[in-house]
Design a protein around this nucleic acid. Structure first.
Lengths: 251, 251
DNA sequence: CGTATCATTGACGTCGGTCAATTCGTGTGG
DNA sequence: CCACACGAATTGACCGACGTCAATGATACG
């Protein structure tokens, strides 16, 4: 089981000192407007690593802001294969889908101990309608999710294994680093194993292992026991066709 | 070049008699509220098959409602490979992205002669902010796009060629049929060729051809000169792991 | 120390890609 | 009406990437 990253999840006493205020849907609200969401929200919750927030097919009455920890959104096919649609990091907003009150189209699984801020689902549209800045904020979040969906689709659909793995690891590096600009290292902790990488990329754990070995022997990147180390950012972003300036701005 | 489907594109004289009013972002507006978008919109436009509305990297000052025809949203990698992110059918709203005024992250190519309703990009957020129902409508559209993104990701990431092709063809069948509930046939016209299927599925045209032959010889589905025919809906939805009730409701 | 989980490696098979030749379909010009 | 051109579809031969299966290590944990 992957280790937790960053210690025990912390739950804010209130929205004022919420650590993710500026990166999630609440972003447009000023300090004096936080009661808008504070009265809607149903509370915070802490879950252990490995637990599920909802399953595919469940009807789920909540929406989630991830306060701390990592969550994987995934699906299971009849073949038994698992596909990881997305990894949610702190600040991520998830659970929203077209058929708002219908069965969930994917599962949400905690990769670490997790803290979430919970909204009730049913009154959510009226919250958005009464507070246009929140609606615009959700639109922005959705557009961002769509972009990363497109990027993942591009990755799986058009690159081969070595480049696919390289691309995903670079994405992890940038996403984690964006949240910890101070820690200047090229090493970051990821609460995942090779099976997660495989399921996110449409590969097998065995082939991911072999691709990782090649990347390591080439001196490009290493991923061992939940530690990701970027060894040669420039060449790595080259073979991954990952925009180099995006990587450089995080070194 | 694939033929046009459904004849010459038609441009409505105004929003009142717009054929896609109820399926696009304007959906929540009653007949007496249409001036809200009518004053914003910059006009309609007709383009020939093969032309581009925008390229990847372009800065584009517009947003589009597809009135008539088919559009493909795609990307090109340095390897020369093309990936089709999505097919837009009449009623689709496209061009919106995270970085609203930044460079486009994909290209929009007309698969047929096309008619679009054009909105200016810059004032769009203020339109949304002043008319919450429009914002909610966009949120709904985005969530629907995200679902089909997830489905496509699942298809490419977790199924093999034969099932992938079957799944995409079923999706086309349902999407086209949804717009023409009257025409009861199992035959629909698609303005695409085998290369498009390949680029949408992360396969090669050669392999798509072979997968199509197998599907045809199995009596499941046939796709020839832009004509798609569903031969055995039940078995087809089975091997594609496509929800059978979705198909049945369109037979 | 026994168990469970994950990582690693090798042998082997298959799916899908590459390359190239041929056919087919459609439109064009003589 | 036929000849030709052009692109798309089709097919076969061959190969490489990736999957499958299974054995072995490594590490953590009770």
């Amino acid at each position: 089981m992957p280790k937790n990253v960053g210690g025990v999840p912390s739950v804010p006493f209130n929205c004022q000192n919420c650590s993710i205020r500026k990166s999630t849907i609440c972003q447009p609200l000023g300090s004096n407007q936080l009661e808008v969401v504070e009265t809607y929200k149903s509370g915070d919750r802490i879950l252990p690593a490995g637990s599920l927030l909802y399953r595919e097919g469940d009807s789920c009455s909540e929406l989630y802001n991830l306060l701390d920890g990592w969550v994987a959104l995934c699906r299971y096919l009849t073949s038994g294969r698992r596909l990881i649609l997305d990894f949610v990091l702190p600040g991520g907003f998830f659970g929203y889908q077209t058929d708002l009150m219908g069965p969930m189209r994917h599962e949400a699984k905690c990769l670490t101990d997790v803290a979430v801020c919970v909204f009730p689902r049913r009154p959510f549209p009226s919250l958005l309608e009464r507070h246009p800045p929140l609606a615009l904020s959700l639109i922005r979040l959705q557009a961002g999710d769509k972009l990363s969906s497109d990027n993942r689709l591009t990755n799986i659909g058009a690159r081969r294994a070595r480049a696919r793995v390289a691309h995903l690891l670079l994405e992890f590096y940038v996403r984690v680093h964006r949240r910890h600009p101070k820690s200047g290292g090229v090493v970051v902790d990821l609460p995942i194993n090779q099976q997660h990488i495989a399921d996110a990329l449409g590969l097998t754990n065995v082939h991911v292992n072999k691709a990782l070995r090649v990347l390591r022997e080439e001196g490009l990147v290493s991923f061992k026991s939940c530690q990701l180390e970027i060894l040669d950012p420039m060449r790595l972003s080259e073979i991954a066709e990952f925009p180099p300036e995006t990587v450089l701005s995080h070194l």
